Structure formats: C-alpha cells, structure tokens
Computed example of a mutant assay.
Amino acid sequence: MKPKNLVIARAVREQGLTHAEAATRYGVTRQWVHTLLARYDTEGPAGLEPRSRAPKTRPGTTPPAVTERIIELRRELTAAGADAGPITIAWHLERDGHLAPSTSTIRRTLHTAGLITPAPNKRPRSSYIRFEADLPNECWQADITHWNLANGTRIEILDFLDDHARFLLQIHAATAFTGADVTTAMSHLISTYGPPYSTLTDNGLVFTTRLARHKGARGGFEKLLTAHGIIQKNGSPGHPQTQGKIERFHQTLKRWLTARRLPDTTEQLQTMLNEFRTWYNTARPHRSIGRRTPERAYTALPKATPTHTPQPEWRTRTDRVDKNGKISLRYAGQLRHLGIGRAHIGTPVLILIHDRNTTVSNADTGQIIAEHTIDPTKHYQPKKR
C-alpha cells in the first residue's frame, strides 16, 4: 500500500478535511479522493493497495479455440506437404467459419508455440521483382522435372502452368519425354483450353532447336506453335529465374510428394500427380493471386488468344540419294524419308525447304529432280508426279 493513500483517507475521515481540501493539500484530484474513500470505507486499509491498470476485457484477444486451430492447421498442412504460412492458415480459418486474426497475430502464435524456425538470412519477399501475365492463356510456362520411384528409378515429370492464374494445365509422368511427346501434350492442351498467346520454356531440345549443336529444322513443338500463331519465348541459358513461376511450382510439388511414400511404379506416380493437380487447382489458396485458387483465377477473366503472324521456315541442306532412291530430312522433330527414284542413286542433291514444301535438284547440274509436300502424319514422302 502507498502510505500517501492512507494519509489522504484518514485526513478526511479522522481529521475532518473536506474532499477539496484534501485534494489541494496532497496534490491529487477530487475524483481520486472520492475513489480512495470509497475503497477505504468498503475494504479498509487493504482497499488502498495499488490495482492493475489492465483493461477488464480484451476484445482483441485471440480466442483459445482459434489459437488451438492455428497450431493444429500448421501441423496438418506441414504433414501434408502443403504451404503452412500465416496467409494460408488464415484462409483455412475463414473457410472453417472462424474470424481469422491478422497474419502477424498468426505468426506470433506460431512463434510462441515453437513452430517457426527463424531464417534471418532469408531474402525479404518485398524485394522480389514480379512479372505476371494480365490474362489467362496469355502465357503458358512448361518444364520437365524429376522424381524417383521406390527402387531408385528416375522418372521425368512434364508440366504446363498458366502464368496469370498459376493454373496447372497438365502434369504427366514418363520414363523420358521426347519432342514428339511434348508436342502431343501441347496439342491436347490446345484442344482443351484453346491456343495461348505465348509460351515460355527453357532451351531443352524437346522445346526448341535454336541452341542445337547442329542447326536444323524446327522441332515439332516449334512447328505446332507456328501453326497456331503462338509466340514462343525461351529463357536465357543458365538463367532459370526467367521461368521463375514454374521453378517455384516445382518446390510446392516436391514438398507435397516428399510428405508421401515413394511410388513403386510410374502408374502410381501418375495417380499421385492427378491427386496433386486437383488439390493444387481447387483446394489450395495461392498467395500471388489474392489467396484465390488457381481454378477460380483461371475462370474469372476472358482468355487471351494468339495474334502473332508466324514467319515461314526457309532452309537448305545437301544430301546424297541412298541405295533405295531416297534422302532423309528432319521435319517437326522427326526424320522423314523423301522418295527421289532409283534412277538417281548416288546423286548429290541440294534440298530447298519452304515450310512443308521441298524442291530437290542435282547439286552438280542444278536440274530439279523431285518436289514434295510433306505430310506430317507420315514418315515416307512420295515425290509429286
């Protein structure tokens, strides 16, 4: 107890000072004198003990049930290999019908529970320079990553991601992907979602031949894009940041796969990838698109369409007619056999290629000996009559 409080109370009750006189003498307010006397009369000297100034109610305090749910969600999401940050936890709380506290409160709760490992050297998110397509189908990113089976076999995973909505268009597993496989996958996506305005990939040979050691024809993927007027973009060699969205997507994918048992077969892995695609597109809030799901973001706006006028392919090559009266030519990533005729066996030839059309002439005399219009569905190409 403060002695001053007891002196004030006794000065009024035992010495007869008025409230105003006591307030003036001891340098306090009359209201404080009234308060001290009320406590003194009710509780005696013990009522003059200093009392807590804390508010009697704390309307901003997180309810215990919400605190418990925050910790529970953190553990559940982490065990499932999903993002378990404060923003994601807030989204799940709201979906469950709770009034979600601020993300800083959620982060503080996780810290108190010992569920956050400090990372002082982690680059702040505010320092990132972001590039994002304005519309769905404005840009599709594609890449190939890997995962292992239980026996250690390395399996390739091909995925296509919409740049604007982060919508996972396709994810497929195979022992290895060829250029023809990638072309088939892209053709299926075009049939399903419509052709995009552009694509963005690395410089793998299944996507482009522009950095091939031996320059040749455009690959099947490039031919398909050209046929639909789709702009093809490729990242700089050794600079995966250009395809940052799909590289970051692979982290989410592999964290999810790591939380599960390794599959025994490629078919089991594909089943897991199908499950992941449904979860990723429809049940996972994405921070970069306003905590919406990719499916919701993809369907919210009209789709971009190709407006590019592709340049025709012009090239030349030399060859010699083989013993069967044929020459070979790579077109759309596959080797084609052009019929010339047995009468020209061993003849050196010059081939002029304009998209699907070829003109074959005798390299020594310049005489045209065959013309072809390549049928992409066939390997053998008979010459025009």
Rank of each mutant, 00 (worst) to 15 (best):
V12G: 10
A185Y: 05
H344K: 14
H372W: 14
F276D: 01
G194S: 02
E21C: 11
R39Q: 13
P3Y: 09
P45E: 06
A176Q: 12
G244K: 00
W140Q: 10
K245Y: 00
N281I: 05
T309L: 13
L158I: 06
K122D: 14
R317G: 04
P86N: 08
G47W: 06
G216T: 03
A65W: 03
T318Q: 14
E14C: 11
T78I: 03
T192P: 07
N203P: 07
I327V: 13
N281W: 01
V360T: 15
Y298H: 14
I289V: 09
R74C: 05
P294H: 14
T359P: 10
V33T: 14
A22M: 11
I89A: 07
T175Q: 10
A332V: 08
H372R: 15
A217E: 02
V12F: 14
W140F: 04
T18H: 13
A217Q: 01
P240A: 02
N137A: 13
T358W: 11
T201P: 00
P237D: 12
I157C: 06
S236K: 02
T88G: 10
A363S: 09
N281G: 08
N362F: 12
A22P: 10
Q170G: 04
Y197W: 11
I246T: 06
Q251K: 00
T184M: 07
A22I: 12
Y26S: 07
M1F: 06
G244A: 00
